[in-house]
């Protein structure tokens, strides 16, 4: 077991460069940044929640989401409007920022 470790790399030069520092951040940073912003939420079923005033009020560790003033789009057609909406996190495919963070 002890001698099964691979030999150290012959190259003992500098470690790999750090990732660029510009606009990177963890997924958690993104989710923190998107609170209070306009978003597009897509569910695994293909339904979108969006709108010119569709705000993400808050979210939690399950990715449950509270949206304000949102429109439900199915195949690009508005099918419903909600003043407030709670989306259960397991249905979420992605959250897209619809304005600069």
């Amino acid at each position: 077991m002890a001698d099964s470790t691979p030999p150290p790399p012959a190259d003992d030069q500098s470690p790999p460069p750090p990732p660029p520092q510009s606009h990177t951040g963890s997924p958690t940073d993104f989710l923190k940044g998107v609170v209070g912003k306009r978003v597009i939420v897509r569910l695994t079923s293909g339904v979108d929640y969006r709108g010119t005033t569709s705000l993400l009020s808050c979210l939690d560790g399950y990715m449950n989401i509270a949206l304000e003033q949102t429109e439900e789009h199915v195949n690009g057609v508005v099918t419903n409007r909600y003043g407030d909406a709670f989306i259960r996190g397991n249905n979420v495919l992605y959250i897209s920022a619809a304005e600069a963070l």
Partner: peptide, 15 residues
Amino acid sequence: MDPSSGIQEPFDLIR
């Protein structure tokens, strides 16, 4: 934070 309503987490909407 949401100034317009007292909602800190999504479940508040349900509560």
